[in-house]
Design a protein around this nucleic acid. Structure first.
Length: 895
RNA sequence: GCGGGCGUGAUGGAAUGGUAGACAUAUCGGACUUAAAAUCCGAAGGGGGUGACCCCGUGUGGGUUCGAGUCCCACCGCCCGUACCA
């Protein structure tokens, strides 16, 4: 007899795996390969339960495939460049590199005890010069193939700190440190020509059958292919006509005004001679650059005084307005507004008292437009009548297409396919990133660095005491020789977007030490990633950029044609959340003389501030059937025992001092004190418990709420499995009648769990494993049958709880490692029972059930069903209107 | 604002359009124990009835279907993304 000791078991088997070297991936053309990859972590400092969940899922797949005879590649690395390292350097004076590598060391130590089947020999960090040097080499290849160019683009500019801000650093339109209102400013930046691939990236989505449909749909909408009309409005003053693009040319007769972006060349031209307009444009350019900020900002407009002629009626003049919601990046940066059929246009017209022309759609009950635009619902068949394009009747896209045709025939417009997808701006005005390997020469212009001079390495001696890019103010780093003419020149000081680093790391894992970005033989063998796993938050940018990069790498000879879509299957997992315990404190606000301030109404002023409490500082009681949280320290101060339930219960009613609000299911965040450290769980219960729990409680694509009781329960269950196995080892119970039933259940478990693992139904698979464990425990079966069932149980559990499974396998005399033992196969003939129970419905409501042989013909089933008391009673002597028999499923009698 | 997703007992959740609530947690009852822990057995969506049973029930309101948690439409709430967070 022995007890389940996770610590001993886990140490022992991790060593056994390490000795056997079973996770080291070597190219072996004789075996089928399987490449499983979890999105690599940013080394933020410590791992959290979200990491544990992500890597456990990947590990389940990796171990399952290993058991199925695949040559598995399961690597791990670090997405190591990024802003947090610079922020840490700013806050505490260290170097971003030192901070980053320190975090990597800590996090690796934290990951080791989880027993993941990772090939650590392939590890790298994207901030290793060996990695980013290869990235620079590829950047130069991309330049040669015309996949990179420079143009002006808009950034967030903090006018006080005189620095570029990331979107994250703009809070309510203000700089996060200076508090100054952020402006939009133009800067020359580097771009990848991802837009050249718009059509291809869109079309290829159809082939990604093993991607979630929602991700494909999101990418489709993001790429945003539309067919619309481009045409010009002639200006009455004879100036350059204004080109507009519209996806709704059919609404042209409802046009109210022409709008241009504050960044439109015309707006910039006009503001030179008009101080008022210039002031408006400055106001309109304020705020962050995000689409969200622009779209939700209050709509502002300015009448330029210019007029344009309607293309179909030269006597119809429309005013030209500048409007802050028009994006220069989409279409031509100019639109025409049709308030009758667009809510935003209508709101704008009402605000500025612009004309609104009523609906042109054929409605049963046409009404003048008030304050609600008529946007035809998707399903209704709302039609145009007497449309200007000559249509008697047309709906939706028909009307758009007919209008484009009409415009082209009339020679005043042109049908144009437009993509929403913009080129990928990769320049960052920051230090901790991959330097862009180009040189600015007064004579030769912008020249790529020579490949033999790569990597262009970041200087170590930098300071972060003032805002801005330290590379810009470094005394010597910029100075270099022009690779073309050999004269004195200056390095580019912009670094690359960290999305570049993560757009090809999966390819680098196939040959992490190669002297070139990839090695073709390795890439051909290991690519594609067979299963990619990561958060849904990467559904668009990271995945789209990677798809682009794989194509660009193929063009440059770094990946085979077959790897153009690098991820065969994708799974997007949810977050791990935890409740937040908070109280709100009102602190008085004092003036300089120490007197509490009052507001306009004379009330004393307070500042409300949230305080967050650690879970271990909280105990729970029930009040009105709801859980209430009490501070442990307060109870102790009042000499009440927080561990005694009755005391807790009484304490709520008697005192209740600090009111603690429980916010369930919040994203784990350091600042809110609700981060659960996986190491605590591992030291209390072991890695297998942590792994089992993160998989068991929620479907993997959904968020999972971390609860202490859940972890406790998982540990209890694993102890029970161990105990049952331990008891079976020396049992001499003879064969019994229940043996066959147990073996049948075993085959069902094999089938169900295998299906569960294959389809990422880990929580359902675990529910089956609970059920199978219960079955074994209660089975009236002999020792041999039980041992056979337990060995299969251990195998089925082994992807989730690999250490415990090895221990049980070895106790029960399974040879070798369970990790490499072949996965059990279900015998199909054992999966179906001979008789089935069929529910009988009357008018769709369950009223009875019958038990019949599984292959009984339909008409016989019907006869038996009709003979049941419930049906006879419902028929009341009559005959049924209809009887539906679904074999093996259900019988429904309609009376 | 726009794009995508989710919503089921006290709780996490299960359910190829076919018996809603599997499995688990918390709870309650019982066994074992001097006692507790551990372990084992059992109850349990809500309401009604002595009972066989009956009514209601998957965010809200409609619809399709013999049959809807599942499909369609509208609404409400929450989450993700929105191109410089990673």
């Amino acid at each position: 007899m022995s007890r389940y000791s996770a610590a001993d078991i886990e140490a022992r088997w991790q060593e056994a795996w390490s000795k056997a070297g079973i996770f080291k991936a070597e190219r072996d053309e004789s075996k089928p390969k399987y490449y499983v990859l979890e999105m690599f972590p940013y080394p933020s400092g410590r791992i959290h339960m979200g990491h544990v969940r992500n890597y456990t899922m990947g590990d389940v797949i990796a171990r399952y495939k290993l058991s199925n005879g695949f040559n598995v590649l399961h690597p791990m690395g670090w997405d190591a460049f990024g802003m947090p390292a610079e922020n840490a350097a700013m806050a505490s004076g260290g170097h971003p590199g030192a901070w980053t590598y320190q975090n990597i060391a800590v996090m690796k130590d934290q990951m080791r005890p989880l027993g993941l089947s990772i090939d650590w020999s392939r590890e790298f960090a994207t901030c290793d010069p060996e990695y980013y040097g290869q990235q620079q080499s590829m950047f130069i290849d991309f330049m040669e193939k015309g996949l990179v160019y420079r143009k002006n683009a808009i950034v967030n500019w903090d006018p006080v700190d005189m620095t570029v801000l990331a979107n994250e650093q703009v809070i309510d339109g203000k700089g996060w440190r200076s508090g100054a209102e952020v402006e939009r400013r133009e800067l020359t930046q580097w771009f990848f020509k991802i837009s050249d691939f718009s059509e291809e990236l869109l079309d290829a989505l159809g082939g990604l059958e093993n991607w979630p449909a929602k991700v494909r749909l999101m990418q489709e909408n993001w790429i945003g292919k539309s067919r619309g009309l481009q045409f010009a409005f002639e200006r009455t003053d004879g100036g350059e006509a204004i080109e507009v693009y519209t996806t709704r040319p059919d609404t042209l007769m409802g046009a109210s005004f022409v709008g241009i972006s504050p960044d439109h060349p015309l707006a910039k031209e006009l503001e030179k001679d008009n101080a008022e307009m210039a002031a408006f444009n400055i106001e309109a350019r304020k705020g962050g650059t995000t689409e969200e900020a622009i779209e939700t900002a209050p709509k502002l407009g300015y009448d330029t005084g210019l007029k344009v002629r309607h293309p179909l009626n030269p006597d119809w003049e429309l005013p030209v307005w500048i409007a802050n919601f028009i994006l220069m990046d989409y279409g031509t940066g100019a639109i025409f507004a049709c308030p009758a059929h667009d809510q935003r246009d209508l709101d704008f017209c009402r605000k500025y008292d612009l004309p609104v022309i009523d609906t042109f759609f054929a409605l049963d009950d046409p009404k003048p437009v008030e304050n609600e635009a008529f946007v035809p619902p998707k399903t209704d068949n709302v039609k145009w009548v007497d449309h200007f394009a000559g249509l008697d009747e047309a709906t939706g896209q028909e009307a758009v297409d007919a209008t484009i045709d009409f415009a082209e025939k009339g020679g005043w417009g042109e049908g144009k396919t437009q993509f929403r997808l913009r080129d990928w701006g990769l320049s960052r005005q920051r230090y901790w990133g991959c330097p862009i390997p180009v040189v600015h020469c007064a004579d030769c212009g912008v020249v790529p660095e020579k490949k033999e001079n790569l990597p262009v390495q970041l200087p170590e001696d930098v300071s972060f005491d003032v805002p801005g890019n330290p590379l810009d103010r470094h005394p010597t780093w910029r100075e270099c020789e022009c690779p073309s003419c050999g004269g004195a020149a200056q390095r580019e000081t912009d670094t690359m977007d960290t999305f570049v680093d993560s757009s090809w790391y999966f390819a680098r894992f196939t040959a992490p030490r190669a002297e070139t970005p990839t090695n073709m033989d390795d890439a051909k063998y290991w690519m594609n990633v067979d299963q990619y796993i990561g958060g849904i938050e990467h559904a668009i940018l990271h995945l789209l950029y990677s798809r682009f990069f794989a194509r660009a790498m193929h063009i440059c000879g770094h990946l085979p044609e077959s790897a153009k879509e690098p991820f065969d299957a994708l799974f997007t997992q949810g977050m791990v959340t935890h409740a937040i315990y908070q109280s709100t404190e009102m602190t008085p606000v004092f003036d300089d003389d120490g007197v509490q301030k009052t507001d306009a109404e004379g009330a004393l002023m307070h500042l409300s501030q949230k305080r967050y409490y650690y879970p271990e500082d909280i105990v729970f009681a029930q009040q009105d059937g709801k859980p209430v949280a009490i501070l442990r320290a307060e109870m102790e101060a009042d000499n009440v025992d927080p561990e005694n339930e009755q005391h807790r219960q009484d304490y709520v009613h008697v005192i209740g001092r600090t009111e603690i609000e429980i916010v369930p299911s919040a994203k784990m965040s350091k600042s809110k004190n609700n981060v659960v450290d996986p190491l605590n769980i591992i030291s209390n219960y072991g890695a297998d418990t942590a792994r089992w729990f993160v998989l068991s409680d929620s479907p993997p694509e959904r968020d999972v709420e971390w609860t202490a009781s859940g972890a406790e329960a998982a540990h209890k269950h694993l102890s029970r499995v161990y105990r049952i196995a331990d008891e079976a080892v020396n049992s001499e119970a003879p064969a019994r009648a229940g043996d066959e039933a147990l073996i049948r259940e075993m085959h069902k478990a094999i089938h169900d769990v295998t299906m569960g693992v294959e389809s990422f139904g880990f929580n359902a698979a675990i529910a089956k494993l609970y059920g199978f464990t219960n079955t074994i425990q209660k089975a009236d079966a002999g020792a041999e049958a039980k041992r056979q069932a337990l060995k299969v149980l251990a195998q089925l559990m082994s992807p989730m709880t690999p250490h415990l499974s090895e221990a049980i396998w070895s106790m029960l005399g399974g040879g070798g490692l369970i990790a490499t033992a072949p996965w059990p196969k279900a015998d199909d003939s054992m999966l179906v029972d001979d008789t089935v129970t069929l529910p009988i419905q009357i008018n769709g409501k369950r009223r009875a059930e019958i038990s019949v042989p599984k292959d009984m013909p339909k008409d016989e089933v019907e006869k038996i069903a009709l003979a049941t008391d419930a049906v006879q009673k419902a028929l009341d002597g009559g005959s049924p209107k209809k009887v539906i028999v679904v074999p093996g499923r259900i019988v429904n009698v309609v009376v």
